[in-house]
Design a protein around this nucleic acid. Sequence first.
DNA 1: CATGAATGAGATTTCATTCAT
DNA 2: TATGAATGAAATCTCATTCAT
Lengths: 213, 213, 213, 213
Amino acid sequence: MSPRRAAALRDGGQNLREHLIAAAGRLVATRGTAGLTVRDIAREAGVADGVLYNHFADKEELVAYALHAHVRAVGAGQAGEPPRPGERTVGANLRAYLERALAVHAAILPAFTGVVGQPKVLARLAELPNPMGGGDGLRAEFAGYLRAEQRLGRVRAQARPEAVATLLVGVCHDLVLGRLLDPSGPAVPEPAPDLVSDVVETLLHGLAPPGAG
Amino acid sequence: MSPRRAAALRDGGQNLREHLIAAAGRLVATRGTAGLTVRDIAREAGVADGVLYNHFADKEELVAYALHAHVRAVGAGQAGEPPRPGERTVGANLRAYLERALAVHAAILPAFTGVVGQPKVLARLAELPNPMGGGDGLRAEFAGYLRAEQRLGRVRAQARPEAVATLLVGVCHDLVLGRLLDPSGPAVPEPAPDLVSDVVETLLHGLAPPGAG
Amino acid sequence: MSPRRAAALRDGGQNLREHLIAAAGRLVATRGTAGLTVRDIAREAGVADGVLYNHFADKEELVAYALHAHVRAVGAGQAGEPPRPGERTVGANLRAYLERALAVHAAILPAFTGVVGQPKVLARLAELPNPMGGGDGLRAEFAGYLRAEQRLGRVRAQARPEAVATLLVGVCHDLVLGRLLDPSGPAVPEPAPDLVSDVVETLLHGLAPPGAG
Amino acid sequence: MSPRRAAALRDGGQNLREHLIAAAGRLVATRGTAGLTVRDIAREAGVADGVLYNHFADKEELVAYALHAHVRAVGAGQAGEPPRPGERTVGANLRAYLERALAVHAAILPAFTGVVGQPKVLARLAELPNPMGGGDGLRAEFAGYLRAEQRLGRVRAQARPEAVATLLVGVCHDLVLGRLLDPSGPAVPEPAPDLVSDVVETLLHGLAPPGAG
DNA sequence: CATGAATGAGATTTCATTCAT
DNA sequence: TATGAATGAAATCTCATTCAT
């Protein structure tokens, strides 16, 4: 009655479309999208070369879905709750946000950098609902947290939440890009031991000496 | 009886090796390395398809040199002197550094993002002396500036120059990556109007309210 | 317990084999056999992709049957009776035959031209009883008519019915082929306005001037 | 100085572009264009798979040139002069024209039938100067001959040269198409022994008995 | 027997690299 | 040493055919 199942799915229960997205996602997560071939994906999925065209219009569509799923998976994999305004100290919360952001970016950015210069993938991505906004979710969430702390008086009224959020996300991009461009380094970027502490300290107290205008 | 000169060099005096690097650099600067073919490079250089193999082991070596040269060229093209410790105000100098860093990154990053996932190019790049280290030169320069200001007492002694440098470079990466992944936006990223001011303000005075520990 | 019926046959009573031949025939009639896929046929028939292999050895066999059916259908669709020997004038009858032959060929030839170079289809076709013989039925019928008119004395005894039949069929082939090879022209070939009259005139009276040997 | 020559040309003196056209032409002449692959052509030419893209935009362009060259070659290969008006007898001249036309069509038509349904080839062909007009050259030449004979009084004034030309070309199309659709027959169509004589007789004297109106 | 997804060979086309000249 | 055509491996995508359900 039903048609035949793919050899790769004999055991498990999923359907092949999701299986392909997952396989492509695995490759994309580690290698990025540059130089990724349909054969690579088929091998990774353990299926025949041509299958993907039974489920997607072309390679780019599959890659876009794979990126999308990858981002969702990373987002879903985030353990714990985000810090709540007013609880603990602002410094501890900053550290928590920064560590979470670093983890998310370490997981996401590698997959995305290769997409630059692949207009077809970008176009497909634009058609998909934005799962995390390429970091915008995090950025907005963090800026919201800061605004709440400002209302509580635990953050200076003159501070600019958006600018601080950019600084936070920027540290992440910096770290991940640095590792990506250094093939000799570890796959999973590890920040310098004191970086988080030092950044938090700087963000909290700034550069200006106490008496300065 | 002397060896034949390439058609493109009939007039000038350089050697073909540098000519090829320059041509590839021009392409890399505008299009990045993704989808760049040896024929593209040969056309741009005005020489025959095969010449590059008389001067480089393979395409990747040439591309690595082109990236290298591109970074150097961008660095050399920076107008003006970097701010000097003790002169003007720290805030003005921070702003100058940030604006310079943004300009440099806007010029450099597009060329680099495609390199992720091209291990052969990355390997070749690793063999070359690091011209700016993807920001490391800037980072070190800025950290040095901050240390000097610390010695002059214009920056808090507890501040961590390396962390601040990472924040500065991170803002640049954030801005450029964001634009690169948004094909609808302008080719040359332009920061939000108040971003630079807001970042400088935050870096100077921090988040903590005056009385906070 | 009875075997499952194809979705497309739930209503009617035919069997699937004929249904497939009819569907393929419809496609062949309009597009020819070039670029025709089994999926096209299955879609047209409203059945699953694989069914045809339960009824035919391969695609070529089905296409051969479809061509065969198409020719029969065109022949059956011919309105009216063929002219009868001794009735009206020979000229009027010639004109009627020619017009009928043109109509038949306009309907048949497009389906056939692509078959050249598809040896498997040709081989299958050769195994089938010849429905009109690519014009042979018409040719024989017309030659028979001419022989009858010869016996009635309305056609010269020296005339060769087979040769005249070839001339008649040839005009058709000429017209249809010409249109097929000219993609700018109309899909349905229309003979030049006076062609039929002129051909009939020539066939009737020949080229030789009255007195010539 | 000059680049390397193709292995297949080591001996002879042509260039590869012409060599490819010739090779494709050979295949096209025998098999037609249906089912012709670029690999077939490369094999026939004895060169690498990708060469044709150094000389032609795509397969269709090469096939169009091959068809073109094939037609020209056939035209050039025609031995002897066409009959001249007023010389010999009209019957002998008709026979000569018919035999020449049959030979030309036997050589040309097989190559062309498959082109139907290959719009890209047809479009390319339309851009090329028409070498024989798919028979139009012959048709016009023969019609011109007949008009000349009419002026000389050796052909009836009422006869229609264009219609007669269509009959002549039609016989050719008939013969060749018949053979093409019959894979069991000889590759080179041979008309029935008396066909030419019978057609000439019919064309000369027509069907109408002497006394008929 | 029908289903229709999976299969995998093969088609077109690109492009890094070689090499006779 | 430059030339640039030739080479051929590989990439994307199509499609006839199979087969578990």
